[in-house]
Design a protein around this nucleic acid. Structure first.
Lengths: 230, 230
DNA sequence: TTTTTTTGTTACCGCTTTGTAACCAACCTG
DNA sequence: CAGGTTGGTTACAAAGCGGTAACAAAAAAA
């Protein structure tokens, strides 16, 4: 597994890196919050060990931004041991919180526990298909019946991904809002507008896939996959 | 969410229970390892708070047995603070490990982090059935004898769910009002109107299920589950 | 830095849902 | 028997919801 270790203390970053490499992980290091976000985007690590006290962008902010679009496991490793710190980090999406000085063995065990729970599902699939509709998740491009239809904006992409991953199921508005906007939060008016935009782009192009409203509940991506049997 | 709290220290089990209930969870308690397994099987909790030092069957053994067949999130709460203990528990499948004395706030935050990662959704029954009548609770759609009949409004859905969950029992008007309107409150005139609307939608479509008035008391969903014997 | 695109916010409109009041028949009580 | 209550039905106003559009602010791209 590929790890991103974020700490402005170079010596400690080395120790953590060594610990993780010994446990069989590949490690990339970032020494400040901005570099962390950059490396996260470019390297797509499987998990992140994140300090809180960072130059340029603190760890909590990093965590929050990552959580907007990603479920990559995040373990906080910090000198801060107050309840408020722990609770805040966990609230912003961290999966675990360890206080320095830390036990290398315990760090490895906790990494493994979180990865076990996370499974492989946190990785975004490269492509999703529903009926004759295909979404290139990375590029946000939609293809219908082999014909490229155009590109989605970031939020449109997240919404369609969520719907496609749960095709033929009704997703409550609250669930969609959580998945699209994450801890930053959104509201029903924003979802309504986004859904309108998504429908505008997809329109009636697909022959067997449509975006359905479930009044008072939410939305569903419906595919007529099974033609009536005769 | 339903929690199973396992601790032989009754006072501590009470504190943990209180903490979790305050956070909105339902709590069941077991005081030894054997009872824990029994309750886990019977109650199907959404997560488990597990002590290690338990009579009859220690916590590690409980964790191990549960993990053979289940992914139910498990948080260890123990006086043991040695690395070996933490690493072993995490290795045997625990999702998190906290040492006593514990911070209630941090316990709640860690429970939430683990549940979030586990993707445990608040569960409500997806479908309810009474006789030949089926209700999709999320979509509010009614199906009779396999034929979709239509969609209920939110309040109609709540009313029918309450009646179906208590089929063949008389529910007083006050109970129905509480369940349908909750803290917002309702009154008998509103219930009367709502029942009329529900009857209008369900009508006489069902062959073995009907909405019955109990004068001066309330209503009941009656199913003739046992066909007359011939 | 400027331009373009994306996103958030507000408004409008039509349709649906819900609350409220009224009417009527049936039943019960004094 | 008259009056009051209850339950079913109807009608309409008020509230809410979902689709669509416009514009300002923020973000991204050139």
């Amino acid at each position: 597994m590929k790890a991103l270790v974020v700490d402005d203390d170079l010596a400690l970053a080395d120790v953590v890196s060594f610990t993780l490499r010994r446990a069989g992980h590949e490690v990339i290091v970032a020494n400040d919050g901005a570099m962390a976000l950059e490396r996260w985007k470019l390297e797509a690590p499987d998990f992140i060990i994140l300090d809180l006290n960072l130059p340029k962008l603190n760890g909590l902010e990093v965590c929050q931004r990552i959580r907007v679009t990603s479920k990559t496991p995040i373990l906080i490793l910090s000198v801060r041991d107050e309840d408020d710190d722990v609770v805040a980090a966990l609230h912003y999406g961290a999966d675990d919180y360890m206080v320095k000085p830390f036990s290398p063995r315990q760090l490895v065990a906790r990494v493994e526990a979180v990865l076990r729970r996370a499974g492989v599902e946190h990785r975004s699939p490269e492509q999703l298909t529903a009926g004759d509709l295909t979404l290139d998740c990375l590029r946000g491009e939609i293809i219908i019946g082999g014909e490229p239809l155009g590109r989605l904006t970031h939020l449109e992409n997240q919404l369609l991904q969520t719907l496609m991953l749960n095709q033929n199921q009704t997703l409550p508005a609250s669930t969609l809002i959580d998945h699209v906007w994450g801890p930053a939060g959104g509201d029903k008016a924003m979802l309504k507008q986004l859904m309108y935009r998504l429908r505008t782009k997809i329109g009636a192009a697909s022959k067997n896939t449509r975006l359905e409203t479930v009044p008072g509940v939410g939305y569903s991506l419906v595919t007529e996959r099974k033609p009536p049997k005769r």
